[in-house]
Design a protein around this nucleic acid. Structure first.
Lengths: 200, 200
DNA sequence: TGTCATGTGGCAGTGACTGCCATGTGGCAG
DNA sequence: CTGCCACATGGCAGTCACTGCCACATGACA
């Protein structure tokens, strides 16, 4: 990796850090792009080359976590049963939370102080889920069913969302592992109360 | 209901119609708020009093459908089992699709031509899901579990999303009832491949 | 060291959205 | 029927996110 790339990588990080600090200090809406650019010592035009959107500055943190989770999934060899591979995903999220708890709490504080940000987050989760469904399908290589892949990916995303949401709602007070365990247990026992539709 | 309210209701509808037509004709991004306001014969300032956002103009259509589904759920007396009440939700969605198929296909065409709109849609689904979780909890009145309510609401939303997505992907070609039936069947048989985490 | 590709940043412009204020219109009391 | 009030309307100016364009600077490589 050349000098150029490392420098850009550093700039990229620094911009996100600066933005994060400003958002925490004075709120998302009351922070302008110009302020962030000034704090990160770049021009606004350059900032937009790193993050195409103001939203992206916040969402990127979550995105990194989800990317790690996806990598954890892809790292599982095709031989391992799907259930285990998916557990690796949840496990990765758990680890991310454990490793950045303070930062994440501040992040989610920004999110729920700024209703407009939810959309970006929801969208990120959505496209991540799409990606996962696609990878599940590819993994099962022809034998799989599109509906099944979609539902499985959605279920996985649900677990992640419920765990994260419960954790943040508790202010980081409860243990992530406990929540995860309980959520997975629920998923097996009684979480799906749909009846089969009446036969015609 | 006074003359004033009916007039406003009509205006509200007319604005959304005009916006929809323009979006279909020339795309979402290439349509300005001023054009919509002109087509609907109101000032832009007035338009913003009806729809707080350009996105809201599109999303409102989906919102109406989801509102109907929520009403269907709330209409179920507390005595009916939760599973049946939730089936009423899915059924309502099914009916909405059946009743407005052409319109909905055009709508989803706008959505996937305009990546920026996905966020608003995802956000709508998110808050609707939150609302459903809350109502499920209220319905079970104290005996319920927060995690369980969240997971159940999420599952329901998944079914809806998967059904709608499959339907739109097929260009409205396949029967909604068939997709729903198959999705629900999958949900019962093999959709949740998570293992319980290894005991410590 | 010179040259080229590529990152940077300023500037002007577009369009979504907001606060403020004057104006018009339905609803209602007298 | 009339006059008053609440409220809907819409114009105008302003803010801010975001973009295209162009001149400039700097790392990479011959």
């Amino acid at each position: 990796m050349g000098l150029r790339e490392t420098k850009m990588e550093r700039t990229r990080r620094f911009i996100a850090e600066s933005a994060f600090d400003l958002f925490v200090a004075q709120g998302y809406d009351d922070t302008t792009i110009e302020q962030i650019a000034a704090a990160a010592e770049v021009g606004t035009r350059t900032l937009y080359r790193y993050y195409s959107t103001k939203e992206a500055l916040v969402v990127s943190f979550v995105e990194n976590g989800l990317d790690a989770a996806m990598d954890a999934f892809l790292a599982q060899p095709d031989e391992t049963p799907l259930s285990e591979a998916l557990y690796a995903v949840v496990d990765s999220v758990e680890q991310t939370i454990g490793a950045n708890s303070a930062r994440l709490l501040a992040l989610y504080d920004i999110f729920d102080k700024t209703t407009g940000l939810r959309a970006g987050l929801a969208d990120l989760c959505w496209s991540w889920r799409q990606r996962l469904a696609q990878e599940i399908l590819r993994r099962e290589n022809g034998t799989g069913d599109v509906l099944h892949a979609a539902l499985t990916a959605a279920s996985t995303m649900n677990v992640i969302e419920v765990v994260v949401q419960t954790w943040t709602a508790s202010g980081g007070g409860v243990d992530v592992t406990d929540i995860t365990r309980e959520t997975l247990k629920l998923l097996h026992t009684k979480a799906i109360p749909f009846p089969s539709p009446a036969a015609p």
